[in-house]
Write a protein that binds this DNA or RNA. Structure first.
Lengths: 109, 109
DNA sequence: CAGTATCCATGGGGATACTG
DNA sequence: CAGTATCCCCATGGATACTG
């Protein structure tokens, strides 16, 4: 590989991050969990336009990526809580940088 | 709105950024342009698995967002170059943070 | 409350051929 | 070289109903 033709291969960090965090909802869910543990219904209330299907599906994806974990108290009525894992907390600087980007972009307007 | 129920509304910076940079290709294109001007064919060569349709489409999207601009020299054979705008350069810290995230994530592995 | 199950629509994305 | 034009697939995402 020549030095002046570095490719964006299938295994570059950008693609890795995109695969883990890409899509419409995952970063919004992680951001909501950045301030602490939340239950399913509370997440749905804070992200009003997400469907239950997508919320459940993305929660599973995030668990599989070890970015959040799930605590089921096995109570009736059900109580289930979601929280960031230590790996999940690694996304917080990235989210902060996204906020910075949007703000600066609009400042340049 | 209560202080303990901040919603992720339709106009939050995360959604703004996702709309502008979301999808499979835009960040990869911007990253390739981070080191300087590139022509269409060179971009395609560096991102081998993108189709011409998607490359052209995403270049248009990025131009519309004022993140890159296009210089057409009106020569034969055609010579067209793409480069980051000043707004486009605002994404570089974000890309850097994505690389950091992926690296740290794997370090924790 | 915390989900599944089901069905369905859209458009993101791809393959290929063609053109100035 | 730098794109368009077509045609097509399927994953993403949504609506609604149902359940332990």
């Amino acid at each position: 590989m020549e030095s002046n033709s570095i490719q964006v291969t299938a295994r570059c960090p950008i693609r890795t991050t995109l695969e883990m965090l890409g899509g419409k909802w995952k970063l919004l869910i992680l951001f909501q969990l950045s301030t602490g543990t939340l239950r399913f219904a509370e997440l749905k209330r804070r992200i009003p336009d997400i469907s239950e299907k997508m919320l459940a599906q993305e929660l599973h994806n995030l668990i599989n990526s070890d970015l959040i974990d799930k605590q089921d108290y096995h109570e009736v009525p059900p109580r289930v809580e979601y929280a960031l894992t230590s790996k999940g907390k690694l996304v917080l600087p990235l989210i902060e940088e996204m906020r910075n980007f949007a703000l600066n972009y609009e400042r340049f307007g």
